[in-house]
Nucleic acid binder design. Sequence first.
DNA 1: TCAAAAGGTGACCGGCGGGTCACTTTCGAA
DNA 2: TTCGAAAGTGACCCGCCGGTCACCTTTTGA
Lengths: 208, 208
Amino acid sequence: MRRSAILDAAEAVFAEHGYNGATLEEIAERAEFGKGTLYNYFPGGKEELYEVLFEERVVGGLSAVVEAALPDARSLATPDEARAAFHDFVSGLLHHFEANRSVLRLYISEAPRAFNDPDRMTMMVRLFEGFMVTVTRAIARAMDAGALRPMPALPVAHLLIGNVRGLLMAHIASDCLPAGIHELPPLVPDETADFITTVLFDGLLARD
Amino acid sequence: MRRSAILDAAEAVFAEHGYNGATLEEIAERAEFGKGTLYNYFPGGKEELYEVLFEERVVGGLSAVVEAALPDARSLATPDEARAAFHDFVSGLLHHFEANRSVLRLYISEAPRAFNDPDRMTMMVRLFEGFMVTVTRAIARAMDAGALRPMPALPVAHLLIGNVRGLLMAHIASDCLPAGIHELPPLVPDETADFITTVLFDGLLARD
DNA sequence: TCAAAAGGTGACCGGCGGGTCACTTTCGAA
DNA sequence: TTCGAAAGTGACCCGCCGGTCACCTTTTGA
């Protein structure tokens, strides 16, 4: 109870101000507890709080989405099956992040932090390994079955995830701007998933 | 002379430690000048130094690449022309960032910072506007000419840039890891540009 | 009812780093 | 050679915030 209230407040504050800009004071104030209490639940202080938050909410959310859309048991043998599955995956990601904007911000903000510290990067790679492996394996299965043409699967996974991240970042940016400037139409997860899936599967070239 | 030496040192230190982790002390030490001198060249202190660095090197670099590869004068009327032009663009980006890793890090690290402050976000949008407009216009021209099928051009631009960013981030991550762990093959800009262009133009689906 | 344990608290501490400024050095014109 | 201006310097200042701990409150169970 307390623990999750602390995590809720931390999620909001870290998302709003970033790791460095967030203060324990503000987190404590928002969740209505004293700063000292935090150390009962997270003895490692700010860093541990952030790590737990990241692992439980960011990595946990991504894992849930990928396991729902791309389980190893799902057949990806035909183009239509593959298209449907990856559409579900993209749509799941978009719905998840649409409903959890602050988790999205944590996700986007983490990469630069990891660049500055090999230990943190190692941990991040470990945390995301399961997610990346599942996505990559799904791509490889669809290729092996002949639904997708053979290519190195891992870079394709990076492209797919880069696509989703690119569009989401544009939407965060749009949200951050003062009203009226450079506004994007609101994110409609299913339409956006259609868009990404179509471009990714069929390509940009005009067809006869 | 002094000015650019300061910027060189700042580029290295900001790239290595991030904005918050970088200290003026270290920048000064690396470029062999006193901390006070910095305020002669950048009266606004750390923030101004970072902004100038970002505008001159990150935005400047991106603008140079896009203007070389996708000038308004370049014909994009046929699929082959469009493919060649966007290949040049992606290849240019990859070569540029391959040769300027610290600039790449600054670029990747900026987004989260902008999320936390509407003013900074507004400035970023303004700085990148020319770049985005040029890319988007090139895509729209290729669509109008029938080389690419008609779609909203701006989201396609976000996908394209997301693709490049996604692969580059994977490479930065790989570089940051202790030797031997999860290594990616080294980045070969032209091959990677082929890969991105092929996926983007032709799609992932197996063809007859 | 009470005492001990568990949980909670926020004033305080210390270091860290951005920014300042009185002083020194360098430069260039007379 | 001289002198005023410009450039350079780094010890110092000070606000900030993560972390601590002595104290207080609540819970538990006998």
